[in-house]
Nucleic acid binder design. Structure first.
Lengths: 96, 96
DNA sequence: CAGATAGTTTTAAAACTTTAAAACTATCTG
DNA sequence: CAGATAGTTTTAAAGTTTTAAAACTATCTG
C-alpha cells in the first residue's frame, strides 16, 4: 500500500479532535492513572465536572475509538484503548 | 517533576487542534514529502486551495509550533518543526 | 516609479462545539 | 413495585472555527 486513503485521515482527524480539549487530555491522563472504578460519577467528581458534561466528553473519546466502555450494573466503566494509541499515536501516552 | 502543569496541556491541546482537520494533516504529509519550495502558492496549487485559506491553515500550524516559516523574497517557505513532533507526538510522523 | 506577484488580514456568513439544565432510560435495593 | 442511583439524551444559548471574497502589505522586475 502506497497511497493513503482519506478514510484513514478522517479517523486521524477525529482522534486529534477528541484530544484537542484540555479537559479530554486530563481525562486520558486520569484513565491512565486510575485503571479501575472509572465510572462517569468518579471521573466527574475527581475532575469537578457536571455528569452530563462527563458523559458528553466520554462519548467523543469513545467515538474516536480512544476508550472502551463496559457495563457493570448501573455503572459504566471506561478504559483506554491502548491499541488505538499505539497505532495512531505511538509513544504519545508516555509523554503525558 | 511530577505534577503536570496545565500550561503544557494547553500546548498539547493546541497541537491536537491544529491536527484535527483532514486538510491540515494532508498539509503535514505534503511538507514531509516536499522539503523544498514549500510556498503558500505551491501548496495551494498542489492541494486545490484558495491562497487565503492556505495562509489561514499554515498560521494555525505555525501557532501550534508545528512548522517554521522563513522568508525568501516575496515567498515564504514552510517546513515541519520536527522537534515539536518528537517532543509531543514521538513516532507520529512515521505513521503518516 | 508602476505594475505584477506572493502572501496576509479583515470580514461576514455558515457550520460546528461546548456547556448546563431538564427530561429521560436503565438498573439496583428494600 | 417505589424510590434511589447512574448515566444518557435533548435542548438552547454561548462560543469557536472554517470558508472565500475583498482589501491590504511587501517585495520584485522592468
Amino acid at each position: 500500500m502506497t497511497i493513503k486513503l482519506s478514510k484513514e485521515d478522517e479517523k486521524r482527524a477525529k482522534i486529534f479532535k477528541a484530544l484537542s480539549e484540555v479537559k479530554r487530555i486530563e481525562m486520558i491522563r486520569y484513565l491512565r492513572a486510575h485503571r479501575s472504578n472509572n465510572t462517569c460519577g468518579t471521573i466527574g467528581e475527581a475532575m469537578g465536572m457536571d455528569k452530563s458534561n462527563v458523559s458528553y466528553h466520554l462519548k467523543i473519546l469513545y467515538e474516536a475509538d480512544l476508550i472502551d466502555v463496559s457495563r457493570a450494573g448501573q455503572n459504566r466503566l471506561s478504559q483506554l484503548k491502548e491499541d488505538t494509541f499505539n497505532e495512531f499515536l505511538p509513544g504519545f501516552l508516555d509523554t503525558l
